[in-house]
Amino acid sequence: MTPRRTILGPALAGFALALGSHPEVARRLAVTLGAEPRRALPLDRLLELGLNHLALAGIGLALVALMGIGLGILATRDFAAPLRAGIDGAAAAAQAVPPVVMVALALPVLGFGGPPTVLALVAYSIMPMLRGTVGAIEAVSPEARQAAIAIGLSPRQVLLQVELPLAAGIILDTFRTALVLAVATTAVGGLAGASTLGTPIVAGLQNQNLVPMLQGAAATAALALLCDAALLAAASRLRRWNIPAGRGATCP
């Protein structure tokens, strides 16, 4: 059960920050902070960057979800038991390479632009997603699984009708973390020449122009907070559907 205010908080902060990225508001804000009122990023350019940001993060996230959840399901099958021990270690090792470094390392391989960003995003997020999926499926109570086998469900039915529905809540939580990471990594992609909301931040820092920097920062943060709030709402809705079914299946 997610308390309403944990959804409302990020959502309100997100809307406030989105408002702050508007050219006029950002310029006023910069003046209040004592900077010169220099040229702001026009609204249509900001929207274009935002859409591009969403598209890149979405592509990366779709790849992460497909591969992470798919491999996670494979890793929890009986035949893969000896591989499972390695997953935690590999996930920890992958986290030792921060997203900025991932983007930088992907740069010589793929050149400037979107591709190194997507590669970095996938490389950084896939192991946490895989580990989260494995953890979620392993957390399904053995009684539920055995009961399903006892009533004659095939392995495929056990997976689709028992394991995945019961694991969905935790998998969705992992996906939320991956989403936040995706938005952040895509912003860092601005350093590798991808046109994202990170671009005005990097450009503003280089030109010492506070206005686009504020706009980029506020818009990036707003995007992350709003996406997070949307998924939180989705997760709490899913949990409300799932709890009766889950309770029935875990305590037969």
């Binding site: 990020p10 931040i201 943060a221």
Partner: peptide, 9 residues
């Protein structure tokens, strides 16, 4: 939730 690059900026 706030991306680091945005917070630093």
């Amino acid at each position: 939730v706030v991306p680091a690059i945005a917070l630093f900026g």
